[in-house]
Design a protein around this nucleic acid. Structure first.
Lengths: 346, 346
DNA sequence: AGATATAATGGTTGCGCTACCATGAATAGC
DNA sequence: GCTATTCATGGTAGCGCAACCATTATATCT
């Protein structure tokens, strides 16, 4: 039996990279010591820290996070999975998350499901392959496999935006149903009786649908007419809000108030009303949802429901970090609530 | 010489994970074959694809991207480094990037420098440690080390937002100087003579400063008075725009036109003027920069410069992917230009 | 002084995967 | 019918780092 002559494997050298080992040689210490200087500088003497620091400088060493993540089976990365990037709500949530993660030294990996649960599942599978330290994901509604995958995973998961009882792990959000109900109560208390709802993609954006359902309950409670929502299939924008507003008034001239699924649409309606000479709220009242700043500046100012969006992101990130660092243990659910901001438009 | 009895190393088992090897055993093939089924399914027979696919399903295998990235020295991740997330401009750019990357199977890693070049440098160093496939970074202005780092790196880099000649590698953007000049020409052609500029954080947001410089050049060309910019230190918002507008008019009642650094400020000024009963453009003209949709809806509609933000992101991502896939080779610079959208506010 | 505790450093292994080459099977060419 | 060429699959090594324990050197105690 002859010796194997050919020794397969990597023979071609990669482009030269500076690694821990090179730094260690330069500094005359062991690689593991270099690792410690970088990751847990407190566990190492001042002299070494300096010596190694100098070698790092001289060689221009950049730690390879990928190798570190493989060795430790954890990367300092947190995927944030949202349904849309064109909706400012999610942007503000992402901002809140990013602020908190950055300080703690974590990177944010962005996932956009485009309101597609299948895509969400694929995204989750891919992103879990990065051994992230935790996951933040919008919504409580997922495919069974997504739920199973996240549940089987041993790291913290925070579901955000809506508040509910059947969370995978942790949950930070608010009840959109209650928010819709609250707006209904407000409109009714102001004397409006013919109340409509305008929103888009209600099948995909089921949180908006919950707001509608909440409104419906309120209307039912007062024995008022419940109308099907005026809906459309394009993404929300002020432009679209203005158009949908005109169409709705055309189709149902008896409307005396309209609850829009979000502020983008509602602000568009107010600006359009202004141009068309439609008196708000005299002819028809307008209400929104979100609490964007622009709602306070238009004339009349917008009645809306303010959700603490940035705060949702911050809380979610903080809960994640607390768990990752071993502080705080149990799962937990936070209802961040909402506030009704009454403007001149109702 | 005695044998080493103690064999240090990893002895504690990790939480059981399903790996390539397990899938391979289950499917009765070699690990490398499983890898191929997953990464290059075309290079493998139909029968194997099915057999392996079944094993993957049954075991619920999730590929470990970290290990893959280490072995191949490349991860399908692209960091996007921007100075701010509260500015909608960057959000739209990110959207454009994300759209394109997603289709090509890349993940977006988010970096926020908060207009701090030192932070940008640290971020770049950290993010390069992820062996990303390429980098997209806002701006042409960086610390020397950042430039050196990115230049020494062997992968594609796209600098976005502004267009210039001294790019590290590729560049997609527009000339903010020319944009400011163009707006100056417009205002002068409309007969305005006392033209001011309102913007915030001009030291950090040097692109806004370039717009001011462009305006200045235009004013100089026509022998008009050049005023220092009215500036402030908080982040831009319509609220702030309204306030700054009132203060500027107070301080310099002779102003007959104001060029705002961005549309957020300008729209705020228009809405504030409306509330205060200040006639726009009769008493004072207002112009912005960006071309956000809301500018077309306010009354009077806003004169502004439209920059193709989403397109910048898309082009940048496409150039990156082209290079990563070996199509297209040289560096290249794209000036996406801008258009003046004349509204009722000037 | 001797024993013990504490702190600082090092050696070895393996994380899970892909690059590389080798090999065997199937097909084509003459 | 034999060799040349593709095609499909496998074997081995190593990517760069951190986990684990061992081994010193140093401080603290009795």
């Amino acid at each position: 039996m002859s010796e194997t002559i050919n020794r397969p494997g990597r023979r071609i050298a990669r482009p030269a990279t500076v690694t821990l080992k090179h730094v260690a040689e330069r500094a005359g210490v062991s690689p593991i010591t270099v690792s410690r200087v970088i990751n847990t500088p407190d566990a190492v003497s001042e002299a070494l820290r300096e010596k190694v620091g100098r070698a790092v400088e001289e060689l221009g060493y950049l730690p390879n996070r990928v190798a570190g993540a493989l060795a430790s089976a954890e990367s300092r990365v947190v995927p944030v999975i949202v349904p849309s990037l064109s909706n400012a709500v999610f942007i503000e949530v992402i901002q809140g998350v990013q602020e908190v993660l950055e300080v703690a030294g974590y990177q944010l990996l962005l996932g956009n499901t485009q309101y597609d649960l299948q895509r969400e599942q694929d995204l989750a599978a891919t992103l879990l392959g990065w051994s992230p330290a935790g996951v933040i994901i919008a919504g409580l509604r997922h495919t069974d496999r997504t739920r199973a995958m996240l549940q089987a995973w041993r790291r913290p998961v925070v579901e955000i935006m809506e508040h509910g009882t059947r969370a995978i792990d942790m949950n930070v959000g608010l009840s959109h149903y209650k928010a819709g109900d609250a707006m209904g109560e407000h409109l009714v208390s102001r004397g409006y009786r013919e109340i409509g709802f305008i929103g888009g993609r209600l099948k995909a954006d089921y949180r908006a649908l919950h707001r509608y359902k909440g409104l419906e309950r309120s209307l039912a409670r007062h024995g008022l007419r419940r109308r099907p929502p005026f809906t459309h299939e394009s993404k929300s924008s002020p432009q679209l809000g203005g158009d949908a507003f005109m169409r709705a008034l055309d189709a149902s001239p008896d409307l005396d108030a309209i609850f829009f699924a979000n502020d983008d649409l509602a602000v568009g309606a107010i600006l359009r009303a202004q141009r068309e000479g439609i008196a708000v709220p005299k002819r028809v009242a307008i209400a929104g949802f979100n609490g964007f700043g622009i709602g306070e500046l238009v004339q009349p100012s917008l009645t809306t429901i303010v959700s603490p969006r940035q705060q949702i992101g911050q809380i979610a990130a903080n809960k994640l970090i607390a768990r990752m660092q071993g502080r705080e243990s149990g799962a937990a659910s936070v209802d961040v609530g909402f506030t009704l901001r009454v403007g001149e438009s109702t």
